[in-house]
Simulated assay, not measured.
Amino acid sequence: MTAPHQPSVLERAEALYDLGRPEQAAALAGQHLAEHPDDAAALALLARCLRRAGRPAEALGYADQALRADPELPSAWLLRAELLSNARHFGPAEDSARRGLALIPQHWAGYHVLSSVLLASGQRARHPEAYAHALRAVELGPEEDTTHFQVGLAAYHLKDHATAQRAYEQALRLNPENSEAHNNLSLLHLRRRWLRPGAWTKAASGFVDSAALDTEDRAARYNLETMAWGAAAGARWVALAGFLTAAVGSAPLRSGATGSGPLVAELVGVGVLVALWTAWALWTLRRVPPRLRRPLLLIARGCPPVLWMGGAVALLGLHSVLTLALPRAGAELVGGLGTPLFWAVVITYWASRTALTRRAPHRRRAAPGP
């Protein structure tokens, strides 16, 4: 009776890496390298583990060691290309990607990595070539969600948003847990929020899904912060209109006029103010379905620019209510306090917008290996 195959240390390390446990995989790879220091496959695996652990400089060092041990190892060339691209060394990154591709011309990973490097370089003239390589990757790896995602990314850079959307949707059909595809598809929906009903809601839903799938990805969280800030900033128009409505509606009573006219003006002002805020609340509730309200609220509570904007709007809205509730309070309430609050909303809008922009993360991409 044949004894069952016992996996080697390196095979167990590869399995742990595939299961998303890079620390344990790195420990086993190190154990293997202690006995086989020139094993290129083990060096390349350790480099991948270190990359995933957020230690790119060490990962690059081990990738170089792997290539010194075996210059014909394509996965090490492609990993080196990704690491150099992330470090913005695009010339050497492209050279590494092409050398890796030359070793595996019939494998999708080489075309995928080369396309990623060309897009990351920021040279618009290279975008058509990046798109062509992404299409070739799809031809060779049609069941890989990352190949379709790359087509979407390249198409987006070429401003072909329809193709980008189809590619992202296909990536999600193949892998519903592709957080980057959720995120980028949501960005497309967000661009169309004024043109297509429900686009804003789809965008928010996608960002929530992306953030839930990858808790360490700051991009999706930042996009949610942007949407929460946009909701608060949009309410400034309601607050400013309410401020003017309250000032005009309470003016006759504040000036001491008598008769039914001042009371009618006051009641009209109250009705308009209630209508403004009710319409805004109903519109907001319609845009944000129940499952998205808690995530957006939690995001808003942890984002100072959103809190600043929301606070400024709330204070001006409260001032409008007090102006109509206390019409005889005098000019001190309307002008003395209202005018500073009015300008506070305007100034807070620009200050919070600038602060939000500074919170934007630098997006990291992980290129696969063969």
Rank of each mutant, 00 (worst) to 15 (best):
A228W: 02
A120S: 14
N175D: 14
P327T: 13
R12T: 08
A171I: 08
E82L: 00
A265I: 04
A355P: 01
A27C: 02
S75P: 03
L296D: 04
Y156N: 10
L67V: 07
G20S: 05
V9F: 00
L50S: 03
W237D: 13
R193K: 13
E169P: 00
R365H: 11
V117Y: 02
L322E: 09
C303T: 15
R166D: 09
P370V: 14
A41N: 05
L282M: 12
A355W: 07
H182W: 15
N175K: 09
L103P: 01
P197H: 07
W194M: 09
R68K: 14
P252A: 08
A314K: 01
S179T: 10
P4G: 10
A167V: 02
S75H: 06
E177P: 01
W200S: 11
A360H: 09
L253K: 14
P56E: 08
E169A: 15
A171K: 05
A25F: 07
A87K: 04
M227G: 04
T354V: 12
L240G: 03
A232R: 01
G230K: 05
L190P: 01
A228D: 02
Y156A: 15
Q170W: 03
S8E: 05
V9G: 05
L282R: 14
E11G: 04
A13K: 02
H182Q: 11
A130T: 05
M227T: 12
G330F: 11
E35T: 04
L298F: 03
S320F: 08
A155L: 04
M1Q: 10
A66M: 08
A134N: 08
D39C: 11
N183I: 00
A275F: 10
G256M: 02
A239F: 04
P305S: 04
L324P: 05
R358G: 15
R98K: 11
H36L: 02
G152S: 00
E332Y: 09
A246Y: 05
A57H: 08
S8M: 07
E332M: 11
L253C: 11
A120G: 09
E169L: 14
A63S: 15
A181I: 04
G369S: 11
A281R: 12
A164T: 01
L341R: 04
A325E: 01
T245P: 01
R221M: 06
R55N: 12
E72R: 12
A312I: 11
A219T: 15
N86M: 11
H182P: 02
L103K: 07
A29K: 00
G317Q: 10
L263T: 15
S85E: 06
F90M: 10
R192E: 15
L140I: 10
